[in-house]
Protein backbone atom coordinates (compact mmCIF):
# COMPACT_ATOMS: atom_id res chain seq x y z
CA UNK A 1 0.00 0.00 0.00
CA UNK A 2 1.25 3.40 -0.91
CA UNK A 3 1.50 6.44 1.34
CA UNK A 4 1.17 9.40 -0.96
CA UNK A 5 2.71 12.75 -0.24
CA UNK A 6 4.21 15.78 -1.89
CA UNK A 7 7.66 17.24 -1.92
CA UNK A 8 7.75 20.87 -3.02
CA UNK A 9 10.94 22.71 -3.85
CA UNK A 10 10.58 26.22 -2.47
CA UNK A 11 13.76 27.28 -4.21
CA UNK A 12 12.14 26.80 -7.61
CA UNK A 13 8.63 27.94 -6.73
CA UNK A 14 7.87 31.48 -7.89
CA UNK A 15 4.45 31.80 -6.27
CA UNK A 16 2.69 32.13 -9.60
CA UNK A 17 -0.56 30.49 -8.42
CA UNK A 18 -0.79 28.23 -11.46
CA UNK A 19 -1.31 25.36 -9.04
CA UNK A 20 -4.20 27.24 -7.48
CA UNK A 21 -5.93 27.99 -10.76
CA UNK A 22 -5.36 24.51 -12.16
CA UNK A 23 -6.97 23.02 -9.07
CA UNK A 24 -9.95 25.25 -9.54
CA UNK A 25 -10.59 24.23 -13.12
CA UNK A 26 -9.69 20.57 -12.72
CA UNK A 27 -11.92 20.10 -9.69
CA UNK A 28 -14.53 22.73 -10.53
CA UNK A 29 -13.98 24.39 -7.17
CA UNK A 30 -16.71 27.04 -6.84
CA UNK A 31 -15.88 30.72 -7.13
CA UNK A 32 -14.70 32.23 -3.87
CA UNK A 33 -13.10 29.02 -2.57
CA UNK A 34 -9.73 27.37 -2.98
CA UNK A 35 -8.24 24.03 -2.08
CA UNK A 36 -4.66 25.24 -2.38
CA UNK A 37 -3.04 28.60 -1.85
CA UNK A 38 0.31 30.39 -1.75
CA UNK A 39 1.96 31.52 1.45
CA UNK A 40 4.89 33.90 1.35
CA UNK A 41 7.18 34.33 4.33
CA UNK A 42 9.65 37.19 4.26
CA UNK A 43 12.28 37.54 6.96
CA UNK A 44 14.91 40.15 7.63
CA UNK A 45 15.38 43.84 6.98
CA UNK A 46 15.73 45.41 3.56
CA UNK A 47 17.87 44.64 1.65
CA UNK A 48 19.04 41.58 3.58
CA UNK A 49 15.99 39.44 3.14
CA UNK A 50 15.00 35.86 2.64
CA UNK A 51 11.69 34.80 1.21
CA UNK A 52 10.08 31.40 1.21
CA UNK A 53 7.15 30.83 -1.12
CA UNK A 54 5.02 27.79 -0.47
CA UNK A 55 2.17 26.15 -2.32
CA UNK A 56 0.00 24.84 0.53
CA UNK A 57 -3.02 22.55 0.78
CA UNK A 58 -4.32 19.71 2.96
CA UNK A 59 -1.34 17.74 4.21
CA UNK A 60 -3.14 14.40 4.20
CA UNK A 61 -1.73 13.99 7.68
CA UNK A 62 -0.65 10.64 9.02
CA UNK A 63 -2.52 11.55 12.21
CA UNK A 64 -5.42 13.56 10.92
CA UNK A 65 -7.42 15.23 13.69
CA UNK A 66 -10.07 16.06 11.10
CA UNK A 67 -10.77 12.36 10.77
CA UNK A 68 -10.79 11.59 14.49
CA UNK A 69 -13.18 14.40 15.30
CA UNK A 70 -15.67 13.62 12.54
CA UNK A 71 -18.91 12.31 14.12
CA UNK A 72 -20.20 10.54 11.02
CA UNK A 73 -17.17 8.96 9.44
CA UNK A 74 -17.50 11.32 6.49
CA UNK A 75 -13.86 12.32 6.95
CA UNK A 76 -11.88 9.17 6.53
CA UNK A 77 -8.56 7.73 5.49
CA UNK A 78 -8.88 6.08 2.11
CA UNK A 79 -7.00 2.81 1.88
CA UNK A 80 -5.69 3.78 -1.51
CA UNK A 81 -2.56 5.75 -0.75
CA UNK A 82 -3.84 6.60 2.72
CA UNK A 83 -5.41 9.79 1.44
CA UNK A 84 -7.64 11.80 3.75
CA UNK A 85 -10.95 12.17 1.97
CA UNK A 86 -14.51 13.28 2.67
CA UNK A 87 -17.64 11.39 1.77
CA UNK A 88 -20.13 14.12 0.89
CA UNK A 89 -23.10 11.86 1.53
CA UNK A 90 -22.03 11.25 5.12
CA UNK A 91 -21.12 14.81 5.99
CA UNK A 92 -23.58 16.77 8.12
CA UNK A 93 -21.62 20.01 7.89
CA UNK A 94 -20.86 20.28 11.60
CA UNK A 95 -17.49 21.94 10.85
CA UNK A 96 -15.66 20.14 13.63
CA UNK A 97 -13.10 19.08 11.06
CA UNK A 98 -12.58 22.65 9.91
CA UNK A 99 -11.89 23.68 13.47
CA UNK A 100 -9.61 20.71 14.05
CA UNK A 101 -7.25 21.29 11.13
CA UNK A 102 -4.14 23.24 12.17
CA UNK A 103 -3.63 24.24 8.53
CA UNK A 104 -7.10 25.63 7.90
CA UNK A 105 -7.12 23.43 4.83
CA UNK A 106 -10.86 22.81 4.78
CA UNK A 107 -13.88 24.85 3.92
CA UNK A 108 -17.60 24.31 3.59
CA UNK A 109 -18.63 23.77 -0.02
CA UNK A 110 -21.63 25.89 -1.01
CA UNK A 111 -23.54 22.62 -1.26
CA UNK A 112 -23.10 22.17 2.48
CA UNK A 113 -20.44 19.52 2.90
CA UNK A 114 -16.87 19.95 4.09
CA UNK A 115 -14.41 20.08 1.20
CA UNK A 116 -10.66 20.24 0.68
CA UNK A 117 -7.82 18.92 -1.44
CA UNK A 118 -8.25 15.30 -2.46
CA UNK A 119 -4.71 14.92 -3.81
CA UNK A 120 -6.69 14.63 -7.04
CA UNK A 121 -7.47 11.03 -6.25
CA UNK A 122 -9.43 10.75 -9.50
CA UNK A 123 -6.26 11.48 -11.45
CA UNK A 124 -3.89 9.55 -9.23
CA UNK A 125 -6.02 6.45 -9.62
CA UNK A 126 -5.43 6.71 -13.33
CA UNK A 127 -1.71 7.07 -12.97
CA UNK A 128 -1.62 10.83 -13.42
CA UNK A 129 -0.10 13.37 -11.10
CA UNK A 130 -2.45 15.75 -9.27
CA UNK A 131 -3.47 18.73 -11.38
CA UNK A 132 -1.44 21.25 -9.39
CA UNK A 133 1.68 19.13 -9.72
CA UNK A 134 1.17 18.52 -13.43
CA UNK A 135 0.67 22.18 -14.25
CA UNK A 136 3.47 23.78 -12.26
CA UNK A 137 5.64 25.65 -14.77
CA UNK A 138 8.70 25.56 -12.53
CA UNK A 139 8.31 21.82 -11.96
CA UNK A 140 8.84 22.38 -8.28
CA UNK A 141 6.15 19.99 -7.09
CA UNK A 142 6.59 16.26 -6.83
CA UNK A 143 4.04 13.65 -5.90
CA UNK A 144 4.51 10.04 -4.99
CA UNK A 145 4.79 7.28 -2.46
CA UNK A 146 6.70 8.38 0.62
CA UNK A 147 6.97 4.78 1.76
CA UNK A 148 8.80 3.71 -1.37
CA UNK A 149 12.47 4.55 -0.92
CA UNK A 150 12.89 4.41 -4.70
CA UNK A 151 10.25 7.02 -5.43
CA UNK A 152 11.24 10.46 -6.64
CA UNK A 153 9.74 12.06 -3.53
CA UNK A 154 11.67 9.83 -1.17
CA UNK A 155 14.91 10.45 -2.99
CA UNK A 156 14.39 14.19 -2.99
CA UNK A 157 13.60 14.14 0.71
CA UNK A 158 16.71 12.18 1.42
CA UNK A 159 18.92 14.47 -0.62
CA UNK A 160 17.84 17.91 0.56
CA UNK A 161 16.93 19.86 3.67
CA UNK A 162 13.21 20.11 4.19
CA UNK A 163 10.52 21.00 6.66
CA UNK A 164 6.83 20.44 7.20
CA UNK A 165 4.28 22.88 8.53
CA UNK A 166 3.43 23.05 12.24
CA UNK A 167 5.11 19.78 13.15
CA UNK A 168 4.34 20.79 16.77
CA UNK A 169 0.67 20.17 16.05
CA UNK A 170 1.51 16.49 15.99
CA UNK A 171 -0.39 15.69 12.83
CA UNK A 172 2.59 14.32 10.87
CA UNK A 173 1.86 16.20 7.66
CA UNK A 174 2.78 14.57 4.37
CA UNK A 175 3.70 17.66 2.41
CA UNK A 176 7.38 18.45 2.68
CA UNK A 177 8.98 21.70 1.62
CA UNK A 178 12.54 21.59 0.35
CA UNK A 179 14.64 24.59 1.32
Amino acid sequence: MARFGMVIDTLRCVGCMDCVIACKTENEVPEGFCRDWITTEVRGRFPTLTMEIRSERCNHCDRPPCVTCCPTGASHVEDFGSLVLIDHELCIGCKACLASCPYDARFVHPDGYADKCTFCVHRVRKGEAPACVAVCPTRCMHFGDLDDPQSEVSKLLASRRSHTLHPEAGTRPRIHFLT
Binding site: W37, T39, T40, E56, D104
Partner: peptide
Protein backbone atom coordinates in the same frame (compact mmCIF):
# COMPACT_ATOMS: atom_id res chain seq x y z
CA UNK B 1 6.05 39.25 6.80
CA UNK B 2 3.54 36.50 6.18
CA UNK B 3 1.01 36.71 3.38
CA UNK B 4 -1.41 34.20 1.98
CA UNK B 5 -3.59 34.14 -1.10
CA UNK B 6 -6.21 32.03 0.64
CA UNK B 7 -9.51 33.79 1.26
CA UNK B 8 -12.00 31.04 2.03
CA UNK B 9 -15.23 32.08 3.70
Amino acid sequence: ELTTTRANP
